[in-house]
């Protein structure tokens, strides 16, 4: 039996009066890839952002219910959001490297955690880039600006950057939607490698991508979780008609 990593219980989220998530309950296992799919505006990205409390940054957001990570409710009063986010990496739809060198991008997280020793930083940078499978390309360009890289490379730098703080969970919000097929393939391969060590939750618009990369798939629609199951079951024999209509391309 798999270990449970993330558990949402009756989670609702409101932007002002508008309810974006309705009573979501779902379990996400450790060291697996869970894909969140559904049409635009269905709440999948919003749900993803509740897991590292990025929604805190928006005014007027109210949350009900619980999100347990390793059994602890991250919306408890005494949770330190900063420490929480160190445990959870996030990759965004638009790659967002800092306007700094490749090296400084990767070293950003370790530095804010107080690591200043050059040899230690070198080690982390190399290790993170290797894990993100981009060390060979970057080895001679560590001190070039990260903004000079291609979109696909930038996104993998962002992945390496999030690995440098040694997270347990990695949230990916449509990480390949702005990339060409070759770069997308590289990101998908990377996801496959990373799940040996990390729990990965990925939001995607791309049905094939969900089918290729994930172990579990959750289908969201209009702020509700329609169903979650093993990916092969969702794609071959979904339990709900809505899910079937969506993955067969009849709407969305």
């Amino acid at each position: 039996m798999e270990n449970l990593k993330v558990r949402a219980i009756n989670l609702s989220l409101f932007y002002g009066d508008n309810q974006a998530l309705k009573n979501i309950s779902l379990d996400i296992p450790e060291k697996r890839v869970t894909a969140l799919i559904g049409p635009s505006g269905c709440g999948k990205s919003t749900f993803l952002r509740t897991l590292n409390r990025m929604n805190d940054l928006i005014d007027n957001v109210r949350i009900e219910g619980e999100v347990l990570i390793d059994g602890v409710n991250i919306y408890d009063r005494d949770i330190d959001v900063v420490n929480l986010r160190k445990k959870i990496g996030m990759i965004f739809q638009k790659s967002n490297p800092f306007a700094k060198s490749v090296y400084e991008n990767i070293a950003f997280g370790p530095r804010i955690n107080g690591i200043t020793q050059k040899s230690r930083l070198d080690e982390i940078v190399e290790f993170s880039l290797k894990q993100a499978a981009i060390w060979d390309e970057m080895q001679g360009r560590l001190h070039n600006s990260a903004l000079s890289l291609s979109g696909g490379q930038q996104q993998r730098i962002c992945i390496a950057r999030s690995l440098a703080v040694n997270p347990e969970i990695i949230l990916m919000d449509e990480p390949a939607s702005a990339l060409d097929p070759i770069s997308t393939g590289k990101i998908e391969e990377l996801i496959h490698d990373l799940k040996q060590k990390y729990t990965i939750i990925i939001v995607t618009h791309n049905m094939q991508q969900a089918a290729r990369t994930s172990d579990l798939t959750a289908f969201f629609y209009l702020g509700e979780l329609v169903e979650i199951n093993k990916t092969e079951i969702i794609f071959s024999n979904p339990g709900k008609k809505q899910t079937e209509d969506y993955i067969s391309g009849r709407f969305g």
Binding site: N52, R85, K86, F92, N96, F98, I112, N113, V165
Partner: peptide, 18 residues
């Protein structure tokens, strides 16, 4: 400064001041 940059930093566990 784009909001994506702030989010990248915060998601890495940086405090607001950092």
């Amino acid at each position: 400064i784009p909001v994506e940059m702030r989010e990248a930093s915060l998601a890495l566990g940086a405090t607001k001041w950092q």
